[in-house]
Design a protein around this nucleic acid. Structure first.
Lengths: 214, 214
DNA sequence: CATAACTTGCACACCGACGTGCAACTTAGT
DNA sequence: ACTAAGTTGCACGTCGGTGTGCAAGTTATG
């Protein structure tokens, strides 16, 4: 008895949920490649017909919104567990975590370029941004991060630098090892550390290296 | 007598050339804002009707290609005159020059996102990329630039970092002063200098500060 | 195995944008 | 003032994509 209200109704089929997932996955891939991929293309990728997309989503827009929320959730979850008394280490750590979520990051970055969704993505991603802002502010205050750029601006620059690496990584396929290292170096460099300092910091904090899990 | 071949033909009207310019300018603005602005919108911006666009360009594509070539020309010209025995200074200098060409940079960056034009933009911009590559390689060799990232990759990262600042600058309008400073700091930070080193380098090289001309 | 849940294919209307032909108009140059 | 260069508006066909209705299938599940 699934519920009181839908008495006579049968439970939804399990494979429907799977197809919905397949659609989201296909859409993520297609939209990351080209932000205005057609429903036709997406459905085909998911192994469905265009017609049956409408059995899962009211329209194109709802599909994309679902995608945004899904990506952002993953994204924010990743950022939530990041902390360290040294702000620069925390930033590097955030970088490596982002590397694991690279697919989501790239997708959101692409979607956010299209006019109607900019705001929506910004809202969905607000938590990560907030966290990043905190870390930068703290670092600027205690001297672990540069203080020649206003913290809010610096936070944006670090964000952009990280995204740039992640996007770049897609073109020339880097292995996990190098990708994570690059994100950290880009973040730390933008944060004001010299490349030797950044290297030393990574070497001194093994938790930055052994993130092979997951 | 304009030429021998077009004997009976009258010289083209001067205002036609002006309108062509107006179209390009309007298109640059419109496409930078939204990379799939309609010809209708562009023409209106330029004070013309959609119909007469076809008097200047065979089709939408040719308009965009003209735009790419025009932007890239400006862009490459800017990069050509950049050099300095210290590679990191040269990079910073390139940064400030790019700041002056910010409009073109942003436009090309946007257009390059659209599938059919990626390659074309890459070709058009090849000279700047080449120059950047040289500088990075030289800097890595003589120790003025970080050597923990392969030079070709580092060149891409620096490029992305600079573009990120330029794009970011559009949102929150920065004055000339701060914009140029930010581009330089982002470039130098990515190149491996600490923020204090970057500050010192800028202070020590007045040509990086007095670029108010043009 | 009965049946609701789901998928499919096709038809259709709709929309925005592109590109073109043409006739009438306005305007710069000589 | 004559005239070619340039602009305009409108009509038209085309194309690709969206969203919907419906009838006929297929398949998971109770």
């Amino acid at each position: 008895m699934p519920s009181d209200t839908d008495a006579g109704r049968r439970a939804p089929r399990r494979d429907a949920a799977e197809n919905r997932e397949a659609l989201l996955t296909a859409a993520a891939a297609a939209l990351a490649a080209s932000p205005d991929a057609s429903l036709e293309a997406i459905a085909a990728d998911a192994g469905l017909s265009r017609r049956s997309v409408y059995g899962h989503f009211a329209n194109r827009d709802e599909l994309i919104l679902a995608l945004i929320d899904r990506g952002a959730a993953r994204f924010n979850a990743v950022a939530a567990g990041v902390d360290h008394h040294d702000a620069s280490v925390a930033l590097a750590l955030l970088g490596t975590r982002l590397w694991h979520a690279i697919v989501h990051v790239r997708l959101l970055a692409r979607i956010a370029l299209r006019e109607p969704y900019v705001e929506r993505v910004a809202d969905a991603v607000a938590p990560v941004r907030a966290r990043l802002g905190e870390l930068v502010a703290r670092g600027a205050a205690d001297g672990t991060v540069r203080s020649d750029i206003r913290p809010p601006v610096l936070a944006r620059l670090i964000e952009e630098a990280a995204i740039a690496v992640l996007v770049e990584a897609a073109a020339h396929e880097l292995d996990d090892e190098e990708g994570r290292r690059l994100v950290m170096l880009a973040v730390l460099g933008t944060a004001g550390l010299s490349w030797r300092e950044a290297g030393a910091l990574i070497a001194a904090n093994p938790e930055l290296s052994r993130e092979a899990s997951e």
